[in-house]
Design a protein around this nucleic acid. Sequence first.
DNA 1: TATCTAATTAGATGAACATCAAATTATAAG
DNA 2: CTTATAATTTGATGTTCATCTAATTAGATA
Lengths: 189, 189
Amino acid sequence: MQLDKLVNFHKAVGDPTRIKIIILLKEGPLHGQAISHKLGLKPPTITHHISKLRDIGLVYQRREGNTIYFHLHKKMLEFSAKGILNLGEETMMEITEKEKLSIIKNFFDGDGRLTNIPSKRKKKIVILAYLVRNLSTGKNYTEKEINEYIKKYHEDFATIRREWIMHQFMFRQDNVYELNPKVMWPMVF
Amino acid sequence: MQLDKLVNFHKAVGDPTRIKIIILLKEGPLHGQAISHKLGLKPPTITHHISKLRDIGLVYQRREGNTIYFHLHKKMLEFSAKGILNLGEETMMEITEKEKLSIIKNFFDGDGRLTNIPSKRKKKIVILAYLVRNLSTGKNYTEKEINEYIKKYHEDFATIRREWIMHQFMFRQDNVYELNPKVMWPMVF
DNA sequence: TATCTAATTAGATGAACATCAAATTATAAG
DNA sequence: CTTATAATTTGATGTTCATCTAATTAGATA
């Protein structure tokens, strides 16, 4: 989803009157006069707001005689509302197995040690996930154990440990480290 | 649900600069100058936007020397983004004050300790909310503090702590616990 | 055609707000 | 104590926007 659409959606929903309209239409279609009366606002104001909601695809209308009924597009509301949650994570969905292998090959030497830590996000994620592959889910690790494990691949264990936490490959509580069960090698890639 | 909070959330997110900040912070914490440089905006502008994001609980900060790192509160983002979808189907809106008091009376003994944890969802929610009432919003708790707090009411702190997270009475990031500001005792009931 | 009703447009007003430069505060380091 | 760096506050400016009144359009019906 593009940034503009996301901004426009939130800008449109970021108004008390329009949220009230959404709440009303959630229970079923209404015509302008009804909305106007329920909210205590004049018809032109309702037209103004409805047109904003229509612009972002949240409202459509059906005419019956002189009266126009406004409907809420619930699926669109759900899709748009969740838009911001999926933003910025689509990068890892695009990557192919071939690219991953290429990245890994470039950053590991013949002895299987990491030559350096990638700075580009995409590559870093691939490397971090690859590094974690020999840890077990559901097991608790001490910080020392984690450090020893990392040192087999790279001397800067502190950075990698921190990156794991930051990118949620691992969780830490009370100095106990645990692998995020959601990030297992076959699933991330 | 509070209309104001919902409006404020969408109003805050309904700005291209703030969405960009959210996208940046999604990948990890950043300090003000870094954000300023990446977005091509002056520091006061960043302060302005960060404070708006902090007002709605989406950003918290940690100081390291002269530099302040801003973090995205991902759980809060998800919770807030989905807020508009749950409007009108309030889970606990049906319950009366009388019922709540009755449930509380049945599950607490004379010393104010919880006798056991309800299995029925409705009762469990009431108990979880009641238990949380002496924690403060906006304050960071360690896991140990949370455990000690719960132990005043019940020995199985692990279960209750997990239920709090599960039902979004609290948020956890790394090993820091924080009360969900939206669930305050007088508002839920 | 004339008339009625519902919705829209046009234009005005006042409030909210994004941005910046200048000045100020907070913390760390010399 | 003095200096340097990062963040914040203050105040100004131009823009966006919610709401209204008055006028206009669109469609239905007699």
